[in-house]
């Protein structure tokens, strides 16, 4: 079973209904390490050595955060800036992360409809996530198509439960090294046919 590391960044987790439900479902799952950045580093003073060690110990990395202003919360960016060091994560000898899988899990207030050329956000979520995709690629990691929970303001409890179950199932797939959709095949993990059936 592959070890999964969830790097979670939410500055106001206690107020987020969606993320609370999502996290609750995966937090205590077997072989999953839940790493809460804002709780661990409230003063943004990231322990880089510890972070590197965590990354080395896991094969699957999840970047889980709300989608703020078309990007991640600042501590997540701080994490990327500090931890993914030249000579370790990238560069001629930087191959500590090579071969690991990265899955981005995001929550957005706006629905899927507004994230397209015709919608008011002009671009799709995948387009907005390009910097992350490229970051992972530069580190030699395999960037999977993201798992997005969108339109969170209007989600019913039932829908939310479904998303949470999906999240859990995706993790199980990743742990068992079962084939999972790569970015080329589909836009979101949500689009996986077997997950669709759950709805």
């Amino acid at each position: 079973m592959k070890e999964v590391l969830i790097i979670f960044a939410h500055p106001k987790f206690e107020q987020s209904r969606t993320n609370k439900t999502l996290v609750q479902n995966v937090k205590s799952k077997q072989a999953v390490t839940f790493h809460d950045l804002y709780e661990r580093y409230p003063d943004f003073d990231i322990d880089v050595d510890y972070e590197k060690q965590l990354l080395e110990e896991h094969e699957v990395i999840i970047w889980h955060h709300p989608f703020y202003w078309y990007s991640c919360p600042p501590l997540m960016k701080q994490w990327i800036d500090l931890v993914l060091e030249y000579g370790w994560a990238y560069g001629p000898e930087g191959n500590a992360l090579a071969g690991k899988k990265v899955l981005q899990v995001i929550t957005t207030g706006g629905s899927e409809k507004v994230y397209c050329a015709e919608g008011r956000n002009m671009y799709s979520v995948n387009q907005f996530l390009r910097p992350f995709e490229q970051t992972a690629r530069l580190c030699g990691m395999k960037y999977l198509s993201p798992f997005a929970v969108m339109g969170t303001h209007r989600l019913s409890e039932k829908e939310l439960e479904n998303y949470a179950t999906q999240y859990r199932q995706i993790l199980t797939c990743l742990q068992n090294d079962q084939p999972i959709q790569s970015l080329k095949d589909c836009v979101f993990q949500n689009d996986l046919p077997e997950l669709k059936n759950l709805n």
Binding site: P11, K12, Q15, P66, Y68, G109, H153, R154
Partner: peptide
């Protein structure tokens, strides 16, 4: 209220 999705949610309903 920063990052407080609850506020937006209430506003949209």
């Amino acid at each position: 209220h920063h990052w407080d999705s609850e506020q937006m949610r209430l506003a949209q309903q």
